[in-house]
Computed example of a mutant assay.
Amino acid sequence: MPNHPAKRPPERNAALCRLWTLAAALVAACLLALVCAGPAPAEPVELTVGVERIDYPPYGSFRQGDYEGYARDLLDSFAIEYGYTMVYVPLPVKRLYQEFLETRTLDLKFPDSPDWNPARRRGLHIAYSDPACSYTDGILVKPENLGKGMGAIRTLGILAGFKPWLLTPPIDPRTIKISENASISGLLGKGLMGRVDGVYANVEAARHLLSAMGRADQLVLDPGLPHMTGCYRLSTITRPLVMQEFDRFLKTRSKLVDALKRKHGLDR
């Protein structure tokens, strides 16, 4: 048979081969980039935080529908570091207990304490954080009534949903008339006008609000009357891991926590 020279592949086939090679290289490069980049960052986990729907500076207040104060700054700082998004749910005090303890529609509650409403907490597995800040609750009176003792307190003003029976020494509810108010500002107003003989309130919150009203020192804590000190804590029933993370945050970011307390006047 006659020998024929080998045929060269057509130029079109060579071009196609080059295109396929380039495409394969691009695909490989993309796959390598994806592997190196790792998985896409997860969306922040949303946590609902039940808070008291009262104007309670410097701890927490609502201004034009926005929650602000020490609690907001503290919890937002924690959320940023641990990849959470906090959704603040303001509720009246009585309903806040119901939503947190009974219907369980809230992930977290602030402020909280195992000493508050202990009967409603019995049998529940509630996790509490380490102290987020301290507080003093006591009875404020007009300066001219300082030192007159409990005998001068015939009517005691309190916030609706709050209980003064934890004061030390305890108050006998049979001997004192209770006058409730939905806001601490309204409660202080009753005390200023003499409609109640004393106001049971958080001392720091009362100072802030009286100053804002231009009535600083017109109601003062009587240290001779029953009072109590304690700590506000974050709590949860459904998110115990979050509580462990929050405790770690309080320890590892103690300088930040102290700075926030100074910012809001809670370092005294």
Rank of each mutant, 00 (worst) to 15 (best):
A23F: 05
R253W: 04
K142I: 02
L146Y: 08
R215L: 10
L47I: 09
R233K: 15
G224N: 11
V35Q: 14
K94F: 10
A127Y: 14
T238V: 10
V196K: 07
H227F: 01
S129P: 03
A40G: 03
D137E: 10
A15C: 00
L188Q: 05
G123Y: 07
F249H: 09
H4M: 08
V87F: 00
G151W: 00
L156Q: 06
A29Y: 03
G198L: 01
V242N: 07
A23L: 14
P226Y: 10
D73R: 02
G191M: 05
P169M: 11
P92G: 10
M1V: 13
Y128H: 07
P240Q: 03
S211W: 01
L101D: 01
D107V: 06
R121K: 15
Y135H: 00
E81V: 08
R215N: 08
L250K: 11
T136P: 00
L225R: 15
V87H: 04
L32R: 03
A33S: 12
V35N: 06
G138N: 12
I237E: 11
P226V: 13
V196P: 06
M213F: 15
F249D: 02
L266T: 11
P9L: 05
M150S: 10
P5Q: 09
S183K: 03
K163I: 02
L34H: 10
G230V: 00
N117F: 09
L91F: 01
R268P: 05
T238M: 04
R207P: 01
P169D: 15
K7R: 14
P90D: 10
P57E: 00
L209A: 04
M1Q: 12
Y232F: 15
K148E: 00
I158N: 05
L26T: 14
Y88C: 01
G265V: 09
T175A: 15
S235N: 00
T238Y: 01
Q244R: 14
I171K: 07
G194F: 09
M213H: 14
L241Q: 14
Y56F: 15
A29S: 09
P92R: 05
Y59W: 03
L209M: 11
P226H: 13
K163G: 12
R248F: 02
E102S: 13
T136E: 00
V257L: 00
R63V: 11
S211Y: 01
L167Y: 06
V51E: 09
P44S: 03
R104N: 07
P164I: 15
A25F: 13
K255M: 03
S183T: 15
G214W: 07
E204H: 02
M213N: 11
R12A: 13
R72S: 03
R195K: 12
C30A: 14
L159M: 12
H125Y: 03
G191T: 14
T85V: 09
